[in-house]
Amino acid sequence: MLRQRLSAALLAIAMLVGLQVATTGPAAAAPRILYYDASQAQEFKAVVAQGAQIWNSRVANVQLQPVPAGRTPNIRVYADNGWPRTYSTSLGNGRWYMGREAVNDGYYQPRIAAHEFGHILGLPDRRTGLCSDLMSGSSAPVSCTNPNPNSTEASTVNNLFRSAAAVPAREFTWVG
């Protein structure tokens, strides 16, 4: 109690003599940068970049950037003839495949890319069937062209990268 009164008195005196008293809150942390390598994504390199940009425009605590020369990527992206799938080794690390089977079935390529990045960012599949849920994956209709995470998905990613919580390694595969 005495300490509070003394602090208040000192603050009042400082203000009377014209001293500026600065207070600062916690500094905002810089976003965590995850580097991706799309050199093996073949014809899907541009759509991989589009998927990364979608996430970059929706979250603040993590950013996806192409890997600079001489640096090891956190994420490697490949193309093959199977279904899109992700193998995460930890939060923000792993590899994913842009599977031509889903593309050939008519699924929207930017949605596939953003969805697979979502797994690397810690989100599981949620088979809601809703086009508004990016992580509903192939349970949404083939006609769905929404590549954007909804507010809950974006908030979850921001929270995961705020605390740097560990996410166990998992395998995610689109089911057609």
Rank of each mutant, 00 (worst) to 15 (best):
residue 91 L to P: 09
residue 42 Q to C: 13
residue 106 G to C: 06
residue 75 I to L: 08
residue 70 G to P: 11
residue 125 D to K: 06
residue 88 S to P: 03
residue 37 D to R: 07
residue 99 G to D: 06
residue 82 G to P: 05
residue 95 R to S: 15
residue 107 Y to C: 07
residue 78 Y to L: 13
residue 90 S to F: 05
residue 124 P to T: 07
residue 41 A to R: 01
residue 60 A to H: 12
residue 66 P to C: 10
residue 43 E to M: 15
residue 97 Y to M: 09
residue 58 R to P: 10
residue 91 L to Y: 01
residue 42 Q to T: 12
residue 122 G to E: 13
residue 129 G to T: 01
residue 43 E to G: 12
residue 58 R to V: 01
residue 39 S to A: 15
residue 85 R to L: 12
residue 62 V to A: 08
residue 52 A to D: 11
residue 63 Q to P: 04
residue 96 W to G: 12
residue 118 G to W: 01
residue 88 S to Y: 03
residue 123 L to I: 11
residue 114 A to V: 03
residue 108 Y to D: 04
residue 59 V to D: 01
residue 100 R to L: 05
residue 62 V to C: 06
residue 122 G to Q: 12
residue 87 Y to C: 06
residue 59 V to P: 01
residue 102 A to C: 11
residue 57 S to A: 12
residue 70 G to T: 12
residue 105 D to K: 06
residue 64 L to Q: 05
residue 67 V to D: 12
residue 66 P to K: 08
residue 62 V to D: 08
residue 55 W to E: 03
residue 118 G to Y: 00
residue 106 G to F: 00
residue 69 A to H: 07
residue 86 T to D: 11
residue 55 W to P: 01
residue 136 S to I: 02
residue 107 Y to W: 13
residue 111 R to I: 10
residue 51 G to L: 00
residue 64 L to G: 08
residue 40 Q to A: 15
residue 49 A to T: 05
residue 134 L to C: 00
residue 41 A to F: 01
residue 58 R to D: 09
residue 105 D to F: 07
residue 67 V to Q: 15
residue 42 Q to D: 14
residue 114 A to W: 03
residue 95 R to V: 14
residue 39 S to D: 15
residue 50 Q to F: 00
residue 91 L to Q: 09
residue 87 Y to K: 11
residue 101 E to F: 10
residue 116 E to Q: 03
residue 68 P to G: 14
residue 116 E to W: 02
residue 38 A to G: 02
residue 101 E to T: 08
residue 136 S to H: 03
residue 66 P to D: 15
residue 42 Q to L: 14
residue 46 A to K: 13
residue 109 Q to K: 10
residue 80 D to I: 03
residue 65 Q to F: 12
residue 117 F to T: 03
residue 94 G to Y: 11
residue 78 Y to V: 07
residue 133 D to A: 09
residue 93 N to V: 08
residue 74 N to L: 11
residue 86 T to F: 03
residue 87 Y to E: 14
residue 39 S to F: 13
residue 38 A to C: 04
residue 136 S to Q: 02
residue 53 Q to H: 09
residue 96 W to Y: 15
residue 49 A to H: 07
residue 98 M to D: 04
residue 58 R to C: 05
residue 93 N to K: 06
residue 54 I to L: 05
residue 82 G to F: 02
residue 117 F to W: 05
residue 106 G to Y: 02
residue 86 T to I: 06
residue 42 Q to E: 15
residue 40 Q to I: 07
residue 119 H to S: 06
residue 129 G to K: 02
residue 45 K to T: 14
residue 44 F to E: 08
residue 91 L to N: 04
residue 104 N to H: 10
residue 44 F to G: 02
residue 95 R to W: 11
residue 128 T to W: 11
residue 128 T to M: 10
residue 127 R to C: 09
residue 69 A to T: 14
residue 124 P to R: 05
residue 112 I to D: 03
residue 105 D to T: 14
residue 39 S to R: 15
residue 119 H to V: 06
residue 54 I to C: 04
residue 83 W to D: 10
residue 38 A to M: 00
residue 117 F to K: 04
residue 108 Y to I: 00
residue 83 W to V: 12
residue 93 N to T: 13
residue 99 G to N: 04
residue 41 A to V: 00
residue 45 K to Y: 11
residue 122 G to K: 14
residue 38 A to L: 08
residue 120 I to Q: 04
residue 130 L to M: 08
residue 121 L to I: 02
residue 97 Y to P: 03
residue 38 A to R: 06
residue 102 A to W: 10
residue 128 T to G: 12
residue 102 A to L: 14
residue 43 E to C: 11
residue 99 G to I: 02
residue 116 E to F: 00
